[in-house]
Computed example of a mutant assay.
Amino acid sequence: MVIVLSGGGTAGHINPALAVAEVLESRGHTVLFAGTPQGVEARLVREAGIPFTAFEAAGFDRSHPASIIGAVAKILKSTRAAKKWFADVKPDVVVGFGGYVSIPVGRAAEMLNIPVVVHEQNSVMGMANKYLGKRARAVALTYEVAASALEDASRVVVTGNPVRASVLAAKRSDGREMLGIPEDALMLLVFGGSLGARHINTAVCALKERLLAVENLYVVHVTGPKELEAVEAKLALSDEEKRRWMLFGYQDRMGETLAACDMVVSRAGATSLAEISALHIPAMLVPFPFATEDHQTTNAKAYVAGKAAYMLPDDQVEGDRFAELLFSMIEDEAVRERMREASKAFKTKDAATRLADVVIAAAEKR
């Protein structure tokens, strides 16, 4: 079969697509990708060795209604271009992962009676997925609560959010060796996504003395590129302290880093949560408060309800409650073990396989 995947805008849309691409290709199917020429997908997809075709797409600013005209014009132009492309590549099914580019690609498929499958990574459906989900052959969700955006839930299947094989295969011992952390040490990983999180950084820095006072605790702190210098200045680590508190602006080997840790402080983005749950890592979640429809908070609530994580709002992270929850994870092995066991219920490790099954089934029903 020829399968077209489409998505763009953020790595959160692309990483699950690449994860399911690995499964589809392992089954002998041809995978192609449609994204925007300037988006992060253009780099990530090509690096994964998947043929990439670019289509223009853009959102609009609700406070400037005139911007809708330009956005619609791009969608119409790209829909026509996608139809011509489909005439050449003849896909059996098209899968949208979100982002504006998936709208013209999905619309072109609908016009040519090519089955469309939608995958939503977050607990709140994005605009593109909500639009395509109305007529899609199947709507795959990470969280069942996202189905509330659809009038017809008969085509909904909860697959979880796919995680790339390189993350699933990462070993604790390899991560520890990479970071220079002893096997018997306790490791706290702090990261706020690719851009970092200032409140998380500030809160953790304020706990420097208490954290370093914990015997055999190592802190791996990924600040975000723009925050690194400020965090370095705030911490003012001595050479001896740097041995147990490692600072990175960005970490491109997150699979090994996650596998190495015993607990994590993190945002609640879709990819971060998928990787955390797939590796069964106890977590303190601080949702990004300005995510669309506050979906990171809804994401995090699912893990808190499942007893797999703690959660604290961003505007409370510099208070006493943050320290209380963090040190309960650090100091109590029973808390960490409870979270590890609870995270297994999310079955994220099998999400890519389940989504691949949904995609193939949609194509076979054509």
Score class of each variant (00 low, 15 high):
residue 67 S to Q: 06
residue 207 L to C: 05
residue 302 A to L: 13
residue 224 G to N: 01
residue 350 D to W: 00
residue 34 A to T: 08
residue 218 Y to A: 05
residue 183 E to D: 12
residue 142 T to P: 13
residue 272 S to T: 15
residue 354 R to E: 03
residue 155 R to G: 07
residue 196 G to I: 12
residue 75 I to F: 11
residue 304 V to T: 12
residue 209 E to H: 13
residue 183 E to F: 04
residue 91 P to K: 00
residue 91 P to F: 01
residue 295 H to E: 06
residue 326 L to W: 12
residue 301 K to I: 05
residue 333 E to M: 07
residue 335 V to A: 06
residue 83 K to V: 10
residue 238 S to P: 13
residue 212 L to V: 13
residue 209 E to G: 05
residue 249 G to E: 04
residue 15 N to P: 00
residue 260 A to H: 04
residue 226 K to C: 00
residue 11 A to W: 01
residue 40 V to S: 04
residue 219 V to S: 12
residue 356 A to T: 07
residue 345 A to N: 09
residue 151 E to A: 08
residue 346 F to W: 08
residue 212 L to A: 09
residue 105 V to K: 07
residue 268 A to H: 06
residue 91 P to L: 04
residue 334 A to C: 10
residue 51 P to C: 10
residue 156 V to N: 02
residue 93 V to R: 04
residue 137 R to W: 06
residue 295 H to S: 09
residue 41 E to F: 10
residue 14 I to P: 11
residue 175 G to Q: 01
residue 67 S to R: 10
residue 186 L to N: 01
residue 34 A to W: 01
residue 19 A to I: 12
residue 64 H to M: 15
residue 104 P to Y: 11
residue 27 R to H: 09
residue 137 R to L: 00
residue 338 R to G: 12
residue 108 A to V: 15
residue 232 E to G: 10
residue 178 M to C: 07
residue 264 V to A: 14
residue 342 A to G: 06
residue 33 F to P: 14
residue 104 P to R: 05
residue 99 G to E: 03
residue 93 V to H: 02
residue 283 A to N: 03
residue 182 P to S: 05
residue 316 Q to G: 10
residue 328 S to L: 06
residue 247 L to A: 09
residue 175 G to W: 04
residue 126 G to L: 07
residue 49 G to I: 11
residue 175 G to Y: 00
residue 122 N to E: 01
residue 220 V to T: 07
residue 268 A to N: 00
residue 204 V to N: 02
residue 143 Y to N: 02
residue 72 V to A: 15
residue 234 K to L: 12
residue 331 E to Y: 04
residue 325 L to H: 05
residue 207 L to I: 08
residue 327 F to K: 11
residue 16 P to N: 06
residue 83 K to R: 15
residue 196 G to L: 02
residue 146 A to M: 10
residue 195 L to I: 12
residue 8 G to L: 03
residue 97 F to A: 09
residue 327 F to L: 14
residue 54 A to T: 12
residue 14 I to Q: 05
residue 296 Q to K: 06
residue 275 E to P: 14
residue 319 G to V: 14
residue 105 V to N: 05
residue 183 E to R: 02
residue 173 S to D: 11
residue 160 G to K: 02
residue 150 L to Q: 01
residue 71 A to V: 14
residue 108 A to F: 13
residue 221 H to T: 02
residue 266 S to P: 14
residue 78 S to H: 05
residue 316 Q to A: 03
residue 112 L to Y: 01
residue 334 A to K: 13
residue 266 S to N: 03
residue 279 L to T: 11
residue 202 T to L: 14
residue 109 A to I: 15
residue 212 L to C: 13
residue 155 R to M: 02
residue 57 A to Y: 08
residue 36 T to H: 08
residue 75 I to V: 15
residue 252 D to N: 14
residue 261 C to M: 10
residue 126 G to Q: 02
residue 20 V to R: 03
residue 7 G to R: 00
residue 130 K to P: 08
residue 290 F to K: 11
residue 248 F to H: 12
residue 356 A to G: 03
residue 40 V to K: 03
residue 102 S to K: 00
residue 226 K to T: 01
residue 128 A to V: 09
residue 292 T to A: 14
residue 240 E to C: 05
residue 48 A to L: 08
residue 167 V to P: 14
residue 230 A to P: 02
residue 277 S to H: 00
residue 59 G to T: 07
residue 192 G to C: 04
residue 260 A to F: 07
residue 297 T to D: 01
residue 203 A to V: 12
residue 277 S to K: 04
residue 273 L to A: 04
residue 225 P to L: 04
residue 79 T to V: 09
residue 34 A to H: 03
residue 7 G to C: 10
residue 212 L to Q: 04
residue 244 R to V: 15
